[in-house]
């Protein structure tokens, strides 16, 4: 069972420079654990200490943002393609406030998408 994972430039130090790697797992969390066994440290750049998907990355399964698919619980199937991109965000505001607003915006969009 193979899932193709596309790695952004900033994380290729964990994959020996490889742009695409393969892994397996029934959920995104399983896949990241599997990848971390061969690319140690990769998972830590994607998942926070609290066990949530990091704000600084976007992860997609095929053409969907995993934030709308249950985040780390997103289900995966053989042949799926997972893409990781650095989130592009910032602005003049202080970080803590910005992060709070951003997570609120994501959850608001997730709620809207679920309706």
């Amino acid at each position: 069972m193979a899932i193709e994972v596309r790695i952004p430039t900033i994380l290729r130090s964990y994959t020996g420079g490889a742009k695409v790697v393969e892994g397996s797992g029934d959920t995104l969390a399983d896949l990241l654990t599997d990848l971390d066994s061969r690319h140690a440290g990769l998972r830590g750049r994607l998942v926070t200490d609290a066990g949530a998907l990091h704000r600084f990355v976007n992860v997609y399964v095929n053409d969907e943002d995993v934030r709308f698919l249950g985040a780390l619980d997103a289900k995966l199937n053989d042949g799926d393609s997972v893409t990781i991109l650095p989130a592009v965000a910032g602005g003049a505001f202080g970080f803590a406030a910005a992060a709070a607003i951003a997570s609120h915006a994501v959850s608001a969009r997730a709620t809207a998408a679920a309706r």
Binding site: N58, Y60, D63, D65, R67, T83, L85, A87, V88, A89, G90, G91, A92, F93, A98, I101, A102, A105
Partner: peptide, 20 residues
């Protein structure tokens, strides 16, 4: 040019689907 999904005076964020 990208959409600022945050539509804010103090924060910007690419729309994740547009970015993909």
């Amino acid at each position: 040019p990208m959409e600022n999904a945050a539509r804010s005076m103090t924060f910007y964020e690419f729309d994740s689907m547009e970015q993909l």
